[in-house]
């Protein structure tokens, strides 16, 4: 009698576990098939995460924005984003007087969540492109520096994370981020930001945005893994980080980034 109910209890619990972390269990399965460094015996000190974004591949479909909001419970609406996409429009300017140059025209309606309606004309001499943005996972992050209590931090594997149970909601970090990557979560009233899908990458999965990106414009990279193709990529391409003058040690590398991008 007892053993039966115990068994039922076990089944109930384990099915709940499976439901909650379905992907994880699959990831564990693939681990069993011989990828020892992934998932359960994940060792933080063996990794140093970053991302590579190829502007030449981004088509502004908004898949990453939608995937991120679904994966991480980011509030819908135009004010809260862990990742978003911007559209740059650079009209032909006065090349002899760049200081008088019109500023680039940028838009990001609803963060690109709904994609981008055509707005500009072909052949008007302008330059147009999309720029996906997310937390740069700085290795010398200004947001961590200013947090008064240690509620945001750089993890041993190079991801800047927020401790929701400890955050005061003072919002100093939001001001300290030069890239506008943080917001105050309206429900928890704590700071929130891209976690590089920490719950996924420790299970051997890639981030939700990378999973959903149809062109491979964004790729999760492990800068500590000598076999990661990122090393070859960084060698073969002229890459850039956003606002290098901020000296934040940004680890999101952009290929083909235009100088006008802020």
């Amino acid at each position: 009698m007892t053993s039966k109910s115990d068994r039922r209890e076990f089944l109930r619990k384990s099915s709940k576990f499976l439901l909650l972390s379905g992907a994880a269990s699959v990831a564990y399965a693939s681990v069993a098939e011989g990828q020892p460094e992934k998932a359960p015996n994940y060792r933080m000190h063996d990794h140093w995460w970053g991302m590579v974004i190829d502007i030449d591949l981004c088509i502004g479909c908004g898949n990453c924005v939608r995937a991120d909001k679904a994966e991480n419970g980011v509030p819908l609406g135009p004010k809260y984003f862990r990742t978003w996409v911007e559209r740059y429009h650079i009209p032909p300017g006065d090349l002899q007087h760049p200081e008088k140059e019109e500023l680039p025209v940028v838009d990001s309606e609803n963060g690109g969540f709904d994609g981008f309606k055509e707005k500009y004309k072909k052949g008007d001499g302008s330059k147009n492109f999309f720029v996906p943005k997310l937390c740069n996972q700085c290795s010398h992050s200004p947001c961590t520096q200013v947090c008064p209590v240690g509620a945001t931090f750089e993890s041993p594997d190079g991801v800047v994370l927020v401790d929701r149970e400890y955050c005061l909601g003072c919002r100093y970090c939001i001001h300290a981020c030069p890239y506008g990557c943080r917001y105050l979560h309206p429900e928890t009233e704590t700071a929130d930001k891209c976690s590089l899908c920490y719950h996924r990458i420790v299970r051997g999965l890639t981030t939700a945005c990378c999973e959903a990106c149809p062109t491979g414009a964004r790729r999760l990279v492990d800068l500590k893994d000598p076999n990661d193709p990122v090393h070859e990529f960084l060698k073969m391409h002229k890459v850039h980080v956003l606002k290098p003058q901020m000296a934040t040690g940004a680890k999101v590398y952009y290929n083909a980034l235009d100088g006008s991008v802020r």
Partner: peptide, 20 residues
Amino acid sequence: GHYRGGALEDNRARPAVYAG
């Protein structure tokens, strides 16, 4: 470091929505 070690576990605990 200067944070709650358990915060790492908290961040990991979230269930995945995309299977991969």
